[in-house]
């Protein structure tokens, strides 16, 4: 059952609102930093090993349950200097929590909704949802890592009219990287259980932060972020 739960959680059709976000790809296309399969691959590899790794470790730590969700959310704030990205992460966190409570009812998820009415960063909720679904921390990390490249890839098909086969091949070629990032994130989450959130990776991507603010200020855009 748990393998199926991971497929469900990582599925882009899971009703948690992720389809409305491009993971920074829309602004990168607009700035000419993504122009085709090669530059999409470089963008996704960089995003995976920065924002993706940081998100994956937060998700793994939330799933492991040793660090309280509020402390993980504060760690996510310190790792997210862009207010636009903090707002996006909380919005997606609220939508995911709603979907997860309906899908895998659990008192723990009810408590999170009650204790954090403003919402938690999405990777933290992803980890809690994975826990409620009976998944392991590495599953949560892998789902977060996959999402960090799946969003931009799918969005680029719409933004550039990229061949969907080419876009999917980009994700497929990152399979080894996804596994490595999930391993690193899971090990860091183990560390955080003993040493606190300081042990979590803080890998950052300057252009994602810079572009997120520009994107949020645009009156016309296809994706919310």
């Amino acid at each position: 059952m748990t393998a199926a739960a991971l497929l469900l959680l990582a599925d882009g059709r899971f009703p948690a609102g992720a389809h409305a976000h491009s993971g920074g790809a829309e602004e990168a296309v607009r700035a000419g930093r993504i122009t085709g399969p090669e530059t999409l691959a470089a963008f996704c590899r960089g995003r995976l090993h920065t924002a993706g790794l940081t998100a994956a470790a937060l998700a793994a730590a939330a799933c492991a349950g040793a660090v309280p969700p509020g402390a993980l959310d504060a760690a996510a704030d310190a790792r997210t200097p862009s207010p636009a990205l903090r707002a996006t992460a909380r919005r997606l966190g609220r939508q995911l929590l709603r979907a997860a409570r309906a899908t895998w009812p659990a008192p723990e998820l009810d408590a999170v909704a009650r204790d954090h009415p403003g919402g938690l960063h999405q990777p933290v909720v992803l980890g809690l949802a994975a826990r409620a679904a009976g998944l392991a921390p590495r599953d949560a990390a892998l789902a977060a890592a996959y999402e960090s490249v799946g969003g931009p890839t799918t969005a680029t098909v719409r933004l550039l009219g990229l061949d969907p086969f080419d876009a999917t091949a980009v994700t497929a070629r990152l399979a080894g990287d996804l596994d490595r990032v999930a391993d690193l994130a899971t090990a860091a989450a183990d560390d955080a259980a003993a040493r606190g959130t300081d042990a979590l990776p803080a890998a950052s991507a300057p252009l994602l932060d810079i572009a997120a603010e520009a994107h949020a200020a645009r009156p016309v855009r296809l994706f919310a972020s």
Partner: peptide, 15 residues
């Protein structure tokens, strides 16, 4: 921030 050899994707459009 990690750049240069050994930092995957550092020179791509996200970083």
């Amino acid at each position: 921030l990690a750049c240069g050899p050994g930092a995957p994707g550092w020179d791509g459009g996200a970083v």
